[in-house]
Amino acid sequence: MLNFSGEGVKAGMFVRDAKDRCPHLEIVPYNFEAYEEAVSCDEAFLDVTESEVAGPELLVSEIRKEIFETTGCTASAVIAANMLMVRLATRTDKPNGQCYISPEKVDEYLLPLLIKTLRGIGHVLEQKLKKKGVQNCGQLRMFPKEALQRDFRTKTGEMLWNYSRGVDNRLVGVIQDGR
């Protein structure tokens, strides 16, 4: 397997853009008949709050070690209190890294984080927030929940208020990736 990320080629990129950046790139056609399953298996979400292993970092290190010893593949991992924090931190732990955002470190992680990084904030909402002087989660936190709900509707306002504080009540389980 070749990695062309140094050439600026990334997953999900249009082929024409990838070829512009990397003219020697060869595109190999899919052979769907050769695959036994068409299932994505590159992510797993585990609730380890009831684990008997001494600490989540040790548990995750052991899981990553076992993955490598069994398959020869490296694995990245994020340990955080909820799905929002895990999703945000997945960008910082790759490749082959491990990131732990303890409850005490949530503010340190979130406050400087750009609002466009938050799930559910698209271009239009980002521009509306920027007009109010909001670029990051720390600035977003300055607004009372009621003001956000008034300006952006009830559900969106509550989402903005919660996410800027690292609050996400979704349970760990089967989710659909919105990337």
Rank of each mutant, 00 (worst) to 15 (best):
M1S: 13
L2Y: 12
N3F: 07
F4D: 08
E7H: 12
E7F: 11
K10C: 05
K10H: 13
A11R: 06
M13S: 08
V15K: 07
V15N: 02
R16W: 06
D17H: 06
A18P: 08
A18V: 07
K19P: 00
C22Y: 05
C22S: 12
C22E: 07
C22F: 08
E26L: 10
P29N: 12
Y30R: 07
E33N: 06
E33S: 09
A34Q: 13
A34K: 14
E36I: 05
E37A: 11
C41T: 15
D42P: 10
E43H: 11
E43D: 12
E43Q: 12
A44K: 07
F45N: 02
F45I: 03
F45L: 08
L46A: 13
D47W: 09
T49R: 14
E50A: 12
E50S: 11
E52H: 14
E52K: 15
V53G: 05
V53K: 11
A54C: 02
G55S: 05
P56M: 06
P56H: 11
E57R: 15
E57L: 13
L59Y: 04
V60D: 00
S61L: 02
S61Y: 01
I63Y: 10
I63N: 09
K65Y: 08
K65R: 15
E66D: 14
E66H: 14
F68V: 00
T70M: 11
T71A: 06
G72M: 04
C73D: 13
T74S: 15
A75S: 14
A77E: 01
I79S: 03
I79R: 01
M83T: 12
L84Y: 05
R87H: 08
R87G: 02
L88R: 03
T92M: 15
T92Q: 15
K94Y: 09
N96E: 13
C99L: 08
S102K: 15
S102I: 09
P103T: 02
K105N: 11
K105L: 07
D107V: 11
E108N: 14
Y109P: 00
L114C: 09
I115Y: 09
I115P: 02
T117E: 15
G120V: 05
G120D: 08
V124L: 09
L125V: 09
L125Y: 11
E126C: 11
K130H: 15
K131H: 05
K131L: 10
Q135I: 06
C137V: 10
C137M: 11
Q139V: 01
Q139Y: 04
L140F: 07
R141I: 06
F143K: 01
A147P: 00
R150L: 12
R150I: 06
D151P: 00
F152L: 03
F152G: 01
F152D: 03
T154G: 01
T154Y: 11
T156C: 06
E158R: 01
S164R: 07
R165S: 04
R165C: 04
V167A: 02
V167Q: 04
N169I: 07
R170K: 14
V172S: 04
V172G: 02
V172C: 08
D177E: 13
G178V: 14
G178C: 13
R179Q: 10
R179T: 06
